[in-house]
Design a protein around this nucleic acid. Structure first.
Length: 271
DNA sequence: CACGGATCCTGATGGC
DNA sequence: TGCCATCAGGATCCGT
């Protein structure tokens, strides 16, 4: 469910409401991808100062530490008071004076990890190698062109890799390449500067628009207040194999790249 | 180092 | 209460 826009929409939906809250308790369900990294009691009594985002991670700044949340493939967050009794896929509750933050994650590829601060080894392991934020000023055309020049890999794989830029997941990778007119299999280092500039613009445009519209998701995305996103109504290629291209009417093609499905229009997107 | 693949887990879907 | 194969929004880890 969660690519960068969904994570950001989730953040926006509860960051203000949880700010200043005192942590009163922690409830853990089944194990997630990684252990919490501290005793749950260590969190109790701390304050949640702010909620930030880095890539697809939600970062809760605590009065004495940092709590990193990742939604994996199937995670979603809700925040409210009171919340219903935890269901079988609710694997982490942070009970606070202002409401309960709950991670619901059927596949359990998500994680909640504590670090004493951002320089902590636990934080560096997860955040240390992340690329530049696509919606920030540091994501400039020249740097992006440079990053592509060194990669002898299909451009779609580079986008998913998270080193040239973070936050582009499997859905938006197909969408962004369609908008830029670039075939997903094109090697990154063979993309001209002009086309790299187009791709750079497409990434910013698509992600920013998805955030503005409340996040995407084909099936079940909703923010922490339970409101659904609308981007799925506008996918140009993702999950549209065999359907006519919205621009040229040629049938959308699908293929596998690195165990992930890719969708593209062979007419609109050039190698 | 760069790259490709296996891997974690549960649920939905479709073919037979 | 049918069974089995395939696929799903991520990304780390490991072998080459």
């Amino acid at each position: 469910m969660p690519e960068l826009p969904e994570v950001e929409v989730t953040r926006l939906s509860f960051a203000q409401r949880i700010a200043g809250a005192r942590i009163d308790g922690v409830r853990m369900g089944k194990p997630l991808r990684w252990p919490l990294g501290c005793e749950p009691e260590q969190l109790v009594g701390q304050r949640v100062l702010a909620v930030r985002r880095r890539g697809k991670y939600l970062l809760l700044d605590l009065s004495e530490g940092l709590l990193m949340l990742h939604l994996g493939m199937s995670g979603s967050v809700s925040f409210g008071s009171p919340l219903a009794e935890p269901g079988k896929h609710d694997h982490f509750d942070l009970v606070t004076s202002l409401g309960t933050l709950r991670l619901h994650d059927p596949r359990r590829f998500g994680a909640v990890v504590f670090a004493s601060d951002e320089a902590d080894a636990a934080a560096q392991k997860l955040l240390g190698r992340l690329g530049v934020e696509p919606l920030g000023d540091a994501f400039d055309v020249a740097t992006f062109q440079q990053a592509l020049k060194s990669r002898n890999m299909a451009i779609k794989q580079v986008l998913l890799g998270g080193q040239a830029v973070v936050g582009v997941g499997n859905i938006y990778a197909s969408e962004v390449l369609f908008l830029a007119g670039i075939r997903p299999t094109t090697k990154a280092l063979r993309i001209s500067k002009a086309r790299a500039a187009l791709l750079h613009g497409a990434i910013r445009q698509v992600l920013a628009q998805a955030v503005a519209k409340g996040g995407s998701t084909l099936r079940d995305f909703s923010n922490a207040q339970g409101e659904a996103g609308h981007f799925q109504l506008e996918a140009m290629v993702y999950d549209r194999a065999g359907l006519p291209c919205r621009v040229c009417a040629a049938p959308i093609k699908s293929m596998r790249q690195g165990q992930r499905s890719t969708f593209y229009c062979a007419t609109c997107q050039k190698p």
